[in-house]
Amino acid sequence: MTSALLDTEEQRALRAAVAALGARYGREYFTTVTREGRHTDELWAEAGKLGYLGVNLPTAHGGGGAGMRELSIVLEELGAQGCPLLMLVVSPAICGSVIARFGTDSQQQRWLPGLAAGTLKMAFGITEPDAGSNSHRITTTARRDAATGDWLLTGRKIYISGVDIADATLIVGRTEDARTGRLKPCLFIVDRDAPGFHRQLIPMELAAPEKQFELVMDDVRLPADALVGDEDAGLLQLFAGLNPERIMTAAFALGMGRYALGRAVDYARTRTVWKSPIGAHQAVAHPLAQAHIDLELAALMTAKAAHLHDSGDDAGAGEAANMAKYAAAEANIRAVDQAVHTLGGNGLTTEYGLASLLNAARVARIAPVSREMILNYVSHQSLGLPKSY
C-alpha cells in the first residue's frame, strides 16, 4: 500500500514478517476457528512469542518500545491475510496504552509483560445500555468502603468484546467528587472471576471468534489499587485509550478491505465469460479501482493519526484518529461490497469466504463510535460549528 512508503526500514520489515505469519494461517484457519466456536489461540500465541502483540508497549515490561503505528501495522497485515484479531484493538492498544501511561508500578508489572507476550488478555468496558455515545450518561459507579478503603463497583455494560477470554476487564466507571458532588470518570481493573462480576453472552448475527457480552456488576469489591492512575484525571486517561481504539479500528478495517479487494482482483483477472477476463470490462474494473483508491487514502490518514499519537499530540491525534476510523470504515464497506458483487453468486458461497465479511465490515462503521458521531466531532471540533445537543 502507499502508506507503506511512509514506513521506516524497521516498519517495512515488521509489515513483511507479520504478513508472512498471517499467510501461514490464512482465512481458512480463521473461518474454521469461528465455525467451531473456538478462538484464534494458536495465532495469538505465536504472534505474542514473535513480539508482535506488544510492539507498542515499553521495553522495560517486555514490549517492543515502538508505538501505535507499529501495532496498527500488525493488525492491518493480519487482516489483509484474512485473520483480523479484534482483541488487538482492546488488549494491547486500549488497555496496554492506558496502563503503560497511567498505571501504577505494580499495575504495570502485573499486566504489561503478559499483555505483550499474549499470555494475558484484557477487555475494555465502556458502553452501557443507556449510555452509548454519550459517556456523560454512564451510570456505573464506584464508591469507597470507608472501613477498608476498597472500592465497590455497581453497574452494567453492554457489547463488551472477549470478556470470556480476558483475564480482566478495564471498566470505565464514575466516582463522586468530594468537593462538587459531581460524578467523574475513573478506570478500574476488574478480574474476570471477581465476586459479583457477571457476564451474559449476547447472540450476534456476526461470524467472529470474539464474542460480545453484557456485564452486570453488583457491588463488586475491588482493592484500592484497582483504580488506574489518578482519580482526578479520568477523562485524560480515558481519551488516552480511545485514540488508540480508533486508530486500531481503522487498521482493522483496512486489513479486511485489502483482503476482500485482493480476492476480487484475483477473480476478475481470471474469470472469463466472453472473450476476455471480466476485469477487462470497465464496469468491473473501475469500482475495484475506486475501492483501492479509497483504501489507500484511508491508510494515509491512519498513518497520520498513529504518528500524531506516538509523538504525544493528543489533540491532533484525536481529530486524525476519528477521521481515519471514518475513512477506513467507509472504504472497507465499499471494498467488501464490491468484492462480493464482482464474484456474483460465488461471492455468497462459503468457498470464497467473502459473504461473511458483509456483516463484519459494518463493525468498524458502528463501533467504537458511529459514523454520525464522528461527523458531529469533526463539525464541532474541526469546523467550529455549533452543537444541536
Rank of each mutant, 00 (worst) to 15 (best):
G37A: 06
G37H: 07
G37T: 07
H39D: 15
T40M: 08
T40W: 00
D41T: 14
E42T: 08
W44R: 08
W44A: 10
A45P: 04
E46D: 08
E46M: 09
A47K: 01
A47W: 00
A47L: 08
L50D: 03
L53C: 08
G54R: 07
V55T: 07
N56G: 04
N56S: 15
L57K: 02
P58N: 03
T59L: 06
A60E: 15
H61Q: 04
G64L: 06
G65K: 09
G65S: 11
A66V: 03
A66L: 11
G67C: 10
G67L: 09
M68L: 15
M68A: 15
E70I: 02
S72F: 01
S72H: 01
I73W: 00
V74C: 06
V74A: 09
V74Y: 01
V74K: 02
V74M: 06
E76Y: 09
E76N: 10
E76W: 12
E77K: 14
E77D: 05
L78K: 06
A80T: 07
A80W: 11
A80L: 09
Q81I: 15
Q81W: 15
Q81E: 15
G82N: 05
P84A: 03
L85W: 03
M87W: 03
M87Q: 13
V90C: 07
V90A: 06
S91F: 05
S91D: 15
P92G: 08
A93S: 15
A93G: 07
I94S: 01
C95T: 11
G96T: 03
G96S: 08
S97F: 10
I99F: 11
A100Q: 10
F102H: 13
T104A: 14
D105M: 01
D105G: 01
S106P: 03
S106M: 11
S106F: 08
Q107K: 09
Q107Y: 07
Q109Y: 12
Q109C: 14
R110I: 00
L112T: 00
P113G: 12
L115H: 01
A116W: 05
A117P: 00
G118S: 12
G118V: 04
G118Q: 06
L120C: 10
L120R: 09
L120K: 10
M122Q: 10
A123C: 15
A123E: 09
F124G: 01
G125V: 04
I126W: 03
I126R: 02
E128V: 03
E128W: 12
D130R: 10
D130L: 11
D130N: 09
A131K: 14
G132T: 07
H136F: 10
R137F: 11
R137C: 02
T140S: 14
T141G: 07
T141W: 07
T141L: 12
